[in-house]
């Protein structure tokens, strides 16, 4: 062994030691911003998402949360599950409230993460205008939608995010109609069309979720992440199933993990390997689906997944 390679080895070793120390320090500093004691249902997917958002965002963050499950379960006066400064004002305005916070911080010359959190109702439906406006104004904030595919807090009513054929209390299964008639709104693409960073995430792929939050927070201006958050009650699944169902959603291609950055699509995991029936049959909200309907869902999923994959392969700037 010559002197040079020995030096190199020692240097590498030193670096590795330093890195281990850094990781250890980071672990020691690991911060929990959304803590136990909240009133979310056992096995709630959204609560898992909250914990990871708060943990990755860290202490130097302000949360603007929309009315909905996560607000209701975490802020019962005089208790709070948040160790981060948090404001809730109404249902449709998480992004508008965040805009005000962003402006105030700019005036105070403070560099703090501003994170707006809303469910799919507060994002796809009633919160859409405020979200679109805030992005158009180039406000510096990250909007995270915990997508449980219906109005769960009010007792499972259909939203613009609810997939076709889903049974909800306002799209019930009957002799004539089999659940919701319409397909799910393609929200991450709609947001991406504003020209900002937009991504999907899953609580079954945590390192990917963490990386996306970190990446988004480092980008100046508006950012959007939609995280699938299974609702045990609304989806009629076992309390222990949220993670597994989330994983199946990615593996069946129903909820692919992708990013749109600088107008270009990137499919993070091309792992669509299972038929949608495996995902659908695990959930009570889809139990009424017949073979024809399952085939229809499969066709739609193949079509959308194929399009995302194509865009990802071609690397064309679409927005």
């Amino acid at each position: 062994m010559n002197g040079y390679s020995k030096m190199k080895r020692i240097k590498k070793l030193g670096q590795a030691k330093k890195e281990t120390k850094k990781i250890r320090e980071e672990k020691l500093e690991e911060f929990e911003g959304f803590v136990s004691g909240h009133n979310a249902c056992a096995g709630c997917g959204a609560a898992i998402a909250m914990r990871h958002i708060a943990r990755v965002a860290g202490r130097n963050s302000i949360i603007s949360i929309a009315t909905g499950c996560m607000e209701v379960v975490s802020t019962s006066y005089p208790l709070t599950a948040w160790k981060l400064p948090l404001i809730h004002s109404a249902f449709e305005n998480a992004a508008a409230t965040a805009s005000g916070i962003d402006a105030a911080l700019r005036h105070l010359n403070k560099k703090t993460n501003v994170i707006a959190i809303a469910g799919d109702g507060g994002t796809f439906d009633i919160g859409f205008q405020a979200l679109s406006g805030a992005i158009e104004r180039n406000q510096n904030f990250l909007f995270i939608c915990y997508d449980n595919e219906a109005y769960m807090n009010t007792g499972i009513q259909r939203s613009g995010s609810t997939p076709r054929f889903t049974e909800t209390t306002t799209s019930p299964y009957g002799r004539v109609l089999h659940g919701k008639l319409e397909w799910k709104k393609q929200m991450p693409f709609i947001v991406a069309a504003h020209g900002c960073y937009s991504a999907t995430a899953s609580i079954a792929f945590l390192s990917d979720f963490h990386a996306k939050i970190k990446k988004a927070l480092a980008i100046p201006g508006p950012k959007f992440i939609s995280v699938l958050a299974p609702c045990t009650i609304g989806w009629k699944i076992q309390n222990s199933d949220a993670i597994e169902i989330s994983r199946l959603a990615v593996q069946t291609g129903i909820f692919p993990l992708y990013e749109v950055e600088n107008g270009t699509v990137k499919l993070n995991f091309d792992i669509k390997s299972r038929p949608v029936s495996e995902y659908l049959k695990r959930q009570g909200r889809f139990e009424h689906l017949n073979d024809r309907e399952i085939r229809e869902v499969q066709k739609k999923v193949d079509e959308i997944y194929g399009r995302i994959k194509n865009l990802s392969n071609l690397q064309i700037k679409i927005f």
Partner: peptide, 25 residues
């Protein structure tokens, strides 16, 4: 020296004021 937010509705105007005022300004 104010930050001007050109909001997209009056609902958002008041929401933005609420968010900012909550920051102590």
């Amino acid at each position: 020296n104010s930050e001007i937010i050109n909001v997209e509705s009056e609902h958002s105007a008041m929401s933005a004021c609420i968010g900012a005022e909550a920051c102590g300004v």
